Computed example of a mutant assay.
Amino acid sequence: MTDQHDAEDEKTVRPFAAFLQEQSGGQLHDELSSRLHDLIEAVIETGKAGSLSLKVDVKPIAGTDGRTLTVTDAVTTKVPRIERPKSIFFVTDDGNLSRTDPRQPVITGLREVEPTPVKQLRSAQ
C-alpha cells in the first residue's frame, strides 16, 4: 500500500528550459539569449556589473476548470553604460557657457616656431 501512495505522490517536473523554448512561440528564448549576449558585451566593455531579469505571470482563465492558464513574460535588463566624457566650461558675465575663461587675458602675437635640427651625438670611447 505504501508503494502505491509513493507512486501517486511522485510528479514529473518538466525542465524550465523546455518552457522557455515554447513560450511566445520561442520568442522568449531568443530574446533572453540575445539580451544575455548584449549584457555580457557591455559588462566586458565597461567593467561594470549588469543584470537580466525574467518575470513570468501565470493567471487562470475565468470560466474554465482552473487548469487552463495564460502565461505572460517580461524581460528586463540593466546594461551598464559607458560614461560620457565631461567638458569644462566657464560662465560668462552674460550667463552663457564658454570653453575659454572670460577672466583669462587673451594672448596675441604668437607664432609657430620651426623646430631646430638636432645635432648628432658623438660617442665617447
Rank of each mutant, 00 (worst) to 15 (best):
N96W: 07
T77H: 05
I82V: 14
H37R: 14
V118G: 03
E114R: 13
Q4A: 06
S87D: 10
Q23L: 15
V106E: 09
P105K: 05
P60V: 02
T72Y: 06
G63C: 01
I82P: 04
G50F: 04
A7Q: 13
T92Y: 13
V43K: 04
P85Q: 06
D9K: 15
V13W: 05
V43D: 01
R35D: 11
Q120Y: 09
K119G: 04
L28V: 09
L97T: 07
E31L: 04
L69M: 10
L54Y: 13
F89C: 06
Q27W: 09
D65C: 11
G95R: 10
P105G: 03
E83F: 14
L39N: 02
L32F: 07
V71I: 15
D3N: 06
T72S: 15
G66F: 14
E83Y: 10
T92L: 11
T70A: 07
E41T: 00
E8H: 01
T68K: 12
N96P: 01
K48L: 08
P105M: 02
A62Q: 11
V71Q: 07
R84S: 02
T68E: 12
Q27A: 14
F89Y: 15
P85I: 04
V43P: 00
L39S: 00
F90G: 05
T108S: 09
S123F: 09
T12C: 02
T68N: 12
P80D: 06
S53C: 03
V75W: 04
P115G: 05
T64G: 06
G26E: 07
E83G: 14
K11M: 11
T77K: 14
I82M: 11
G47V: 01
Q125D: 14
T72E: 12
Q104G: 00
V113F: 02
G26D: 04
M1S: 15
R111E: 05
P115D: 13
T92Q: 11
L54N: 09
R14K: 08
H29L: 04
A49D: 03
L39P: 02
M1Y: 12
T2D: 05
V13Q: 03
I88N: 00
E22N: 13
E112A: 14
T68W: 05
L20C: 06
A18W: 01
A62G: 07
L69A: 05
K59R: 14
T2K: 04
N96V: 05
